[in-house]
Design a binder for these strands. Structure first.
Length: 586
DNA sequence: GCCGTTTTCGGCCCGACTGTTTTCAGTCG
């Protein structure tokens, strides 16, 4: 049993607990905290349990420690099983409906004997929900809307969709004379791989009146493409856009802006320890300020931006991408946060498809586009021979492609170097899709899985480990094969993959395609800690696809990567040396 | 359920908006 399974069980306990009628919100939080604590552990959970070292970890008291020990040693958690047995599954389903929390869910299910979403819809239409104490017509109508929304948009959005909407609204608001500062906040600013809603924070002058705020809110809710107004006040309004995504605007005075921006950037998990820290320093944090002292003698600690905000708490500035309660506060305290990689640090690209396989542009067109982007090398990696659907290259066609690359390199000399690469399939048994004598002739080899997704976790891991051990493999492509919001990755032991890659000197890519963003940022940091250099690869199938590097950089930053941790920030000579060192070591 | 250099009991991050109320509960972020 690994720590993620333990964390998942604790999270499930928290979810089920809050649906109990006499639930204590603090008990719920205790399990949520414990789940986070466990997933942040560096040590092996089974060893910690065996050696009795769970005790003393902050956040794990006697009860939860006992429960974890039971789970790890027996593989079962009786407390969780009791909770599951006592909680109708419909209550869990209803949690996904906006506006329905534990209290209302209990009232609905227990008093109206609702067993399905269809039951609930019928109860609403028959006015039985509105008749419940504490409910009314409007609540019932909201529930109906929530049901419809869940049916249509019960999912999250890919980062680029949300980013485009967020920037469009930010720019529209910035054009208003009433607005002093405006910025996108929330999970979008933290560059999460998917986004549920968009938060925007804007400021008006410190002396702005109510009418000014109303004008801004009218503008916001009156934008083209607003499908529905969920709520509208003078400091907060929520809308649903035509794309189905929800957008919230928070309006504050300009003096409050840095605090509000920080507050609405989150993550909630980052705020909780930060506020605890503030309290220990005789300060309190809310969205309107950082205050010293206690009520009623609160004194604002002036901050003109977030840098000063963190400084007031004795911390180095924490970039939004890092605000996930993954150790960033401790690192900021010690002054050990990395300087995160930026797009302009990238010197070249290594994972690009051309018309030789399933790409839309010729190598020449791609090379020109790279020059325009100021890049100095381009790795062409068309698919290998067995990938029929993607027009994979036979050995014969490879030879012709290499001749073309040689000609183009002569033509582009001094501007760009084109490297001969391949995205070579990892076959079912872990062998590669070209013979060794062919692999030996590439400048570099990306090895990827594109078939047999349903092998057992053990088989899939062994398959991947065998590929990593192949001396001609330079980079592992999209290591889990996930497609965000579509399908999970193939099940394999990613920690074992990282371990093997570190041992063999193989790089693991961040596939920058916004549908993939694979390696996941949570593992990027682990790979970095094991000394693995990470290429940020666009997996471009066209010139436009080169721009996806932007999303890969976001994930690299979330994974704490500095420029030095990224393979393709290296100048050409250094990159070639690194690729050859790998060759020489076999 | 966890925690403690004011506390082993009584706190636990904090505020906006909505709707059903007539002073507040529920939900959300």
């Amino acid at each position: 049993m690994d720590k993620n399974q333990v964390a998942q069980a604790l999270e499930e306990v928290a979810t089920l607990l809050q649906l109990k009628k006499d639930a204590s919100p603090f008990e719920v939080r205790a399990y949520e905290n414990a789940a986070r604590t466990i997933s942040a552990l560096d040590d092996d959970i089974e060893r910690l349990v065996k050696e009795g070292r769970l005790k003393g970890i902050p956040g794990l008291g006697p009860t939860i420690t006992r429960r974890i020990e039971e789970l790890v040693t027996t593989g079962r958690l009786s407390f969780l099983e009791e909770l599951r047995a006592a909680t109708p599954s419909i209550k869990l389903e209803l949690l996904r409906i906006q506006g329905l929390g534990p209290r209302r869910i209990n009232a609905i299910v227990d008093q109206l004997h609702i067993a399905s979403l269809e039951d609930l819809e019928r109860a609403c239409k028959e006015d039985r929900v509105a008749a419940l104490p504490g409910f009314g017509k409007k609540t019932q109508e909201k529930i109906l809307q929530g049901l419809a929304f869940l049916a249509e948009h019960g999912h999250r959005y890919l980062y680029p969709v949300a980013e485009a909407e967020g920037l469009r609204m930010r720019d529209a608001l910035a054009s208003l004379p009433e607005i002093v500062r405006v910025q996108v906040a929330g999970s979008l600013r933290r560059r999460r791989e998917t986004v549920k809603d968009i938060d925007i924070v804007a400021s008006v002058a410190d002396n702005a009146d109510s009418a000014t705020r109303q004008r801004v809110m009218n503008f916001f809710t009156g934008q083209p493409g607003v499908r529905q107004i969920i709520s509208k006040g003078e400091t907060r309004s929520s809308i649903i856009l035509a794309s189905g995504i929800q957008m919230d605007l928070r309006l504050v005075t300009d003096r409050q802006f840095p605090y509000a921006l920080h507050h609405f950037t989150g993550a909630k998990e980052h705020h909780i320890p930060l506020r605890r820290r503030a309290l220990s320093m005789n300060m309190t944090i809310n969205e309107y300020g950082l205050f010293r002292g206690k009520e009623p003698d609160l004194e604002l600690v002036p901050c003109k931006d977030e840098v000063e905000f963190y400084a007031a708490l004795g911390l180095a500035y924490i970039e939004p991408e890092l605000r996930e309660d993954m150790g960033e506060i401790e690192a900021a305290e010690r002054g050990e946060l990395p300087t995160l990689v930026e797009e302009r640090d990238l010197r070249g690209v290594l994972h690009v498809h051309s018309t030789w396989s399933d790409g839309k542009n010729t190598i020449r067109e791609l090379a020109e586009a790279c020059c325009e982007r100021g890049l100095s090398y381009l790795g062409i990696t068309d698919h290998s021979q067995s990938v029929g659907y993607a027009n994979g290259l036979s050995v014969e066609n490879l030879q012709r492609q290499w001749e073309e690359i040689d000609r183009l390199n002569a033509e582009f000399a001094g501007r760009l170097v084109i490297l001969k690469g391949t995205e070579c399939d990892i076959l079912k048994d872990g062998s590669l899709d070209y013979p060794d004598e062919v692999l030996a002739r590439f400048d570099f080899v990306i090895a990827s899985i594109h078939s047999h997704f349903t092998l057992s976790p053990q088989e899939q891991t062994e398959r991947m480990l065998r590929a990593i051990a192949n001396p001609y493999v330079t980079i592992i492509g999209h290591p889990t094969g996930r497609l965000l919001l579509e399908r999970p990755g193939y099940t394999l032991d990613i920690e074992a993959v990282i371990e093997a890659a570190a041992r063999h000197g193989v790089f693991i890519e961040i596939n920058a395609s916004p549908q993939r963003l694979d390696l996941d940022w949570r593992y990027v940091r682990k790979a970095r800690d094991r000394g693995i250099l990470i290429p940020i690869d666009p997996d471009a199938h066209s010139i436009a696809g080169l721009a996806d590097m932007h999303y890969g950089v976001g994930i690299a930053r979330k994974g704490w990567l500095a420029a030095a941790d990224v393979l393709n920030t290296r100048p050409l000579e250094e990159l070639v040396a690194l690729l050859q060192r790998r060759k020489a070591s076999r």
